[in-house]
Design a protein around this nucleic acid. Sequence first.
DNA 1: GTCTATATCTCGATAGAC
DNA 2: GTCTATCGAGATATAGAC
Lengths: 182, 182
Amino acid sequence: MSSDTRDTLIGAAQELYAESGVAATTPRQVLQRSGVGQGSLYHHFPSKRELAIAAVERTVSTALAAAEADLHGEADPRSRLAAYLQRPRDAIRGCRIGRLTSDPFVMADATLRDDVAGYFRRLLDEVGAVFREQGLSDGDARDRATAAVAIIQGGYVLSRAAQDPDAMRSAVRGFLGLLGER
Amino acid sequence: MSSDTRDTLIGAAQELYAESGVAATTPRQVLQRSGVGQGSLYHHFPSKRELAIAAVERTVSTALAAAEADLHGEADPRSRLAAYLQRPRDAIRGCRIGRLTSDPFVMADATLRDDVAGYFRRLLDEVGAVFREQGLSDGDARDRATAAVAIIQGGYVLSRAAQDPDAMRSAVRGFLGLLGER
DNA sequence: GTCTATATCTCGATAGAC
DNA sequence: GTCTATCGAGATATAGAC
């Protein structure tokens, strides 16, 4: 099936982007990782840009679905929030999407930039809705949701800097400690 | 003086690294930004790597000094913490140091990686000391300091994604709101 | 110490056979 | 749809005059 090779290329690109970002990932690396022949990439995608768009948009969809699985559901708001913040993460690897905010290839392209912006906009809306369930005003819920997402993004940065997954856990503990006592 | 040209090159590299990172910054760009002739770079630095080390280490020193200026001093601990968290930042530009945790050139080099790790280690120690002044246990102070630094790093990511400096302010408001009510 | 010229490599992309 | 071969551009680095 034609979409097999295409999907394989997208999957390899997603892996490599998580390791090195988009700008630093070459078409040749994608071909080697995927085991697909050289000409095939430019048969399925007109350029590196279109492959990047397909791979980033798939990563964004998957990440949003995972967040919604934690944040929606039957449990009380406090538990859903804790589930989102404490979900197992490969913290040393860094955030596949957050890291793209420093990627020159992504930030130079309006479509890719909007994909990243849209991910965080929707994530902040979801987290904010949970805080509003707890009776917070729109503004306070927004600020607290932004803080919660920043804890995760900052946790990734600190874990990656220290090469230690405990930095993420420490940041989440610090934040949940402040939340939990009220 | 011989260090003039060298300093000019380091300053140009610091600017470019803040805009595009180390991996994506070419020696040619550094020369153009600095106004220095082509051969001069390789007279003052054996390779791109040594220039990067000099520029990153200078950026780290400056950033640590700025943090210490906020966190030390006569004011009460709560005010010093707020001063650090609320200091005016060019949030859309992103963190000059935090972004390096996603930079392939930096992360592939042990010296540069250690420079970045050392920055966050020392920053976390400084912020943690302020929380300990407030009577928190070592562990709780550590967790709260990690959360505070994660708020700033995450605030940078969110501001950059949205191209909106208010994301940083919102994250800090959300965090200080939780801190302030106790 | 600084200049121009250039070597060598890899990148993103294309050509054209099969 | 996939292959090998290769192009033009730009990256890092060096040579050698001044």
